[in-house]
Design a protein around this nucleic acid. Sequence first.
RNA 1: GGCCCCAUCGUCUAGUCUGGCCUAGGACGCUAGGUUUUCAUCCUAGUAACAGGGGUUCGAAUCCCCUUGGGGUCACCA
Length: 508
Amino acid sequence: MNKKSEEKIRLRFAPSPTGSFHIGSARAALFNYLYAQKEKGVLVLRIEDTDRERSKKIYEEDIMRSLSWLGMTWEEGVFEDEERGDYGPYRQSERGDIYKRYLMKMIEEERAYYCFCSKEKLEKEREESEKNKIAHKYSGTCRNLPIKEQDKRIRDGERYVIRLRLPENEIIKFDDRIRGSVSFSSGELGGDFVIGKENFFPLYNFACVVDDYEMKITHVIRGEDHISNTPKQIAIQQALGIEIPEYAHLPLILGNDKSKLSKRHGSVSLFEYKEKGYLPEALINFISFLGWNPGGEREIYSKEEIIEKFSFSRCQKSGAVFNIDKLTSINGYYIRNMELEKLTEIVVPYLISEKLITKKGEGEYYAPQRDEDINFRKIKDIISLYQERIKLLSEVPLLTDYFFIKKLDYDPKLLLWKEASPEDTIRQLQNCISLVESIKRWDLETIKEGLIREADKNDNKGVFLWPARVALSGKKASAGPFEIIWVMGPEMTIERLRMAIESLKGIK
RNA sequence: GGCCCCAUCGUCUAGUCUGGCCUAGGACGCUAGGUUUUCAUCCUAGUAACAGGGGUUCGAAUCCCCUUGGGGUCACCA
């Protein structure tokens, strides 16, 4: 049992809670999740909150809520109100002692050293190399200070940082699961880089390496923007004499201008997509297919199928532009193919937030603008008229509002079909009223039959059907008149038709 | 600028590893047509790409080199 669990691969998703969860983070998380599921491994959620200034609890909650909303699960690390796992704590802010231990060890073994260079001095050096157009590199002023002097200067209270003593000219090579062999020369890492600050406070690359090691992470899957951190982390691992995990660097998600997707590309916060009415299934499908695909022509895959098919060898190496039109189209597909019951359930909150309805009880709602009760069943019927027209859930209130309000607000001229006169249109609407009044069996088929028979009396069905539909919905575009009448019921239908006739009398 | 990475329709991509079946396929978008009372759905058709140049080969989107282009990254942030 124990042995078996040690063989499991272990992955981590390690966001820093310094902003709202966005598409880029979602993608990194997703690929970790997919691979973990595929290999039946363990996914750890670690919070990288060493930056106390910028880290906020609300962002941490946002991360977890977003992951859950998308249907991604993790088995270890930070959860809503607890931590699970044997390698905690899982927040970097609580792991200070661990980093300190490793940092001290590095100093003792002379793998790292104290540096007393002032920021100003370093800044000047950097400007100098920039001016001469050569790659900036730490000059190494403090690299070979005698230990005694180091100790003395610390005792004297001089400010310092801790730098890694980088091997001179060594090739750092790693085998990226997506990119293949990638190599850097140690001399090109910018010199002995800083791994810790005063009081043995770790910097990102160091904390990351220590955590990955302590948490027994076997595979690091992250965005390509981390690829240049990898040789640094490997250098630290080598200095520490610890095992190097496998790496896979995902291609970046790009904005329309092909640069890394960021805030300036508009709404990237996942929450905004949720609000607009994108479904998690659609998002998962779409994001998976940015930089990966199972081959072949099918494009709609469930999460389970994606997990089953997932492999690094089918990952793209180049970045992918985030194409919102395609996402929207996939979203529409998922909506059309959803259970009506479920669709209605997730649409109701949108109706409520637009104040079209309020909740009274289980399955019972109230339409304040009509002063009428309305039950779930009726809302479901309304949604059924729009299921194949909806691309975003947020469109629903605007599309269906006419069912929930008393008086429609539209230009009476809209009632006129093409060249039709107001008088003729009034006649058509009156016919429609008598027809509706005469219907005995209130079902869609009967209503449809009756209306079509009436419509066929004209050269063109539109002469009759268009004004009826506009009278009911008040809109240029809507569901068809048969369906609307069927859902509205005779009373409201006749009320609407009469109102239309009245408004037509005014325009001639 | 140094370093690293990448390169098929406007976009996401199949095909590349293991050259020939590629007259380069699909999807989104757009255009036209059909169904239709409107809108949407659905169906049909069209639009549009192997970055350029050298090799290797009987044969290159596919292998090699160069050029060009794009991106990432260069902190006492993560």
